[in-house]
Structure formats: structure tokens, C-alpha cells
């Protein structure tokens, strides 16, 4: 097996030596796709996953459609023969291990649970793709935007709660929570002791009397049991006398500089309330 591996790796050598100086890349996870699309030079990108091209899932769908798409299997990646494979920590362990066994450099990214995580992942991708400058400039822009949000934030935070299909919400230690705070909101669910992505009972929701209801829509037009929860009569009654805002789920499911757009949207919803 080791001889075959060696032969295989030797067969890759000419490609690396003759190719352009910047390493080529394939990504097999929605969040890493979007980081790659943000940081890489277009010449570098061999493939991103099919979810990245879906406007419902991805903030950069338009951009992703310019590249060949993959479904995240090792055999596809072999055909794209990238120098670097970028994946999520929860992308199939089998695929990532197999690609490593085949001699690929596989970079695993942890999920982005706050803005600092976005910066960390931008830097990791920047380093792997030799595009550290691009990563740093994105981080600088992001920090400037965050500073502007902090400066314009009201002194008194507004009580808000996010409602996801299926009765789920957004708790503490999530990117969404940090973005809500940036918009001048305080997260009622987190104050009720909720961590990460738990569910909030309808009763707790009504008792907490939020001033802003945030729907984090995901395929809202498609009928599903999960979406039916959003039509609960008690929730509808609360929504009639409370300000509401809708943030597309894609802004909060992966962390990108573009996730900050949701802060602007929330700020507008808060100011129109007053």
C-alpha cells in the first residue's frame, strides 16, 4: 500500500511544480465553501459544494455558481485534484480521513460561534491558500463595521427573541446571539438559561414578553411541520402586538463578514418600532 501511495503522490508532483504559485482548493462544506469564496483568488477555486450555490442556504450563491460543484465525496475531489481541501469539523469523518490517506492536505474548520471565530477561520483559510492579505483586509473591514455598530448602539437594550422553525431558538454562545447584541438587543432566550440551539417553550416565550420577535426563516414558503410551529395561534397573537423582523437563516448558519448584514436589518426593525 505504501508503494502505491508513493507512486500516487509522485504522479501529483508535476502538477504542483508546473502550476501557478497559488495553491488550488476544493471545499466540501457549506461554511468552508463561503469562506473559500470570500478569501481565495477565483483562479484558485477548483470546486465548492452544491449547497454553496443554493440561495436559500448560502450568502454567496451567485458567486458559487461560477465554479464546478461537488457533493462532498472523495472520488469527486480526486478528479478536481486540488492542493488543499477545506472541510468542516463535522463533515463526514470518513471522507476527510480518506482524503488525508490519499495524500491531500485537509483543513478542518470549527463552526463559527462568534465574530472572533469568523476571524480565526478567515485567517486559517487565508494561510492555507496563501491569501493572508485578503483575509486580514476582510477582518479589518469587519472590525470597522462592528465598531460602527457598537458606537451607534442604544444604551438600553431591547428584549428580543429569535424563533426558528420547529420551535427552536437561538441561545447564548452563538454567533446569532452576538449579532443580536450588536444590534442593541438582549436575547430573552439566553436570559432564560438557554445555551446554543435549544428550544424555547411557547409558554416561556409568552411570559418573557419580548419587544421584538425575530423569525429566522428557512424555506418559509414550503410547508413543513417545523414551519407550522411558527403559525401557532398564541405566537400569532403575540406577533400582532409586537414588532417582528425576519432574518434569513443563511446569515446565522455560517459565519462570514456578510453575516453582519443581519445586524443592519435588526437595527432597522428596532428603530421602526420606536
Amino acid at each position: 500500500m505504501s508503494l502505491r501511495m508513493l507512486l500516487f503522490q509522485l504522479s501529483l508532483l508535476p502538477i504542483v511544480a508546473v502550476g501557478e504559485p497559488l495553491p488550488t482548493v476544493a471545499s466540501i462544506n457549506l461554511c468552508s465553501d463561503q469562506l473559500v469564496l470570500s478569501v481565495a483568488d477565483p483562479e484558485q477555486i477548483r470546486s465548492v459544494s452544491w449547497l454553496a450555490a443554493d440561495a436559500e442556504e448560502s450568502m454567496l450563491a451567485e458567486q458559487a455558481r461560477r465554479y464546478p460543484l461537488n457533493y462532498g465525496s472523495a472520488e469527486e475531489i480526486l478528479r478536481f485534484a486540488p492542493d488543499v481541501v477545506i472541510a468542516g469539523m463535522y463533515t463526514s469523518t470518513f471522507t476527510r480521513q480518506l482524503l488525508r490517506d490519499l495524500g491531500y492536505r485537509v483543513v478542518d474548520l470549527a463552526p463559527e460561534n462568534n465574530i472572533a471565530d469568523i476571524e480565526r477561520n478567515l485567517r486559517i483559510v487565508g494561510a492555507a491558500l496563501q491569501r493572508a492579505d485578503r483575509a486580514e483586509s476582510l477582518i479589518r473591514q469587519m472590525r470597522a463595521t462592528v465598531a460602527a455598530f457598537v458606537a451607534s448602539r442604544h444604551s438600553e437594550p431591547v428584549a428580543a427573541v429569535a424563533i426558528r422553525p420547529g420551535g427552536f431558538t437561538v441561545g447564548a454562545e452563538t454567533l446569532a446571539e452576538e449579532l443580536m447584541r450588536l444590534a442593541g438587543l438582549r436575547n430573552v432566550a439566553a436570559e432564560n438559561g438557554l445555551d446554543r440551539w435549544g428550544s424555547l417553550s411557547m409558554e416561556t416565550l409568552l411570559l418573557s414578553a419580548p419587544s421584538l420577535l425575530i423569525y429566522t426563516g428557512y424555506r418559509r414558503d414550503e410547508r413543513s411541520l417545523a414551519n407550522l410551529v411558527l403559525e401557532h395561534p398564541a405566537l400569532a397573537r403575540l406577533a400582532r402586538k409586537t414588532a417582528t423582523a425576519t432574518v434569513a437563516a443563511k446569515y446565522w448558519s455560517c459565519g462570514l463578514p456578510e453575516s453582519l448584514h443581519s445586524v443592519e436589518l435588526l437595527k432597522r426593525a428596532v428603530s421602526s418600532r420606536q
Partner: peptide
């Protein structure tokens, strides 16, 4: 299986060994 659906054969000669024996 490639992104376009099922594929037959082993890709190029440089890929054949890896695709056949390792995958």
C-alpha cells in the same frame, strides 16, 4: 460517482490506481 451523476471507468491513468484501490 462524480458531480454530474454516475461515471464508469476510473478517470485518467494517473487517478485510476487511487480511485480503484483506495476508494
Amino acid at each position: 460517482r462524480s458531480s454530474a451523476g454516475p461515471t464508469f471507468g476510473f478517470g485518467g491513468p494517473d487517478l485510476a490506481a487511487a480511485i480503484l484501490f483506495e476508494i
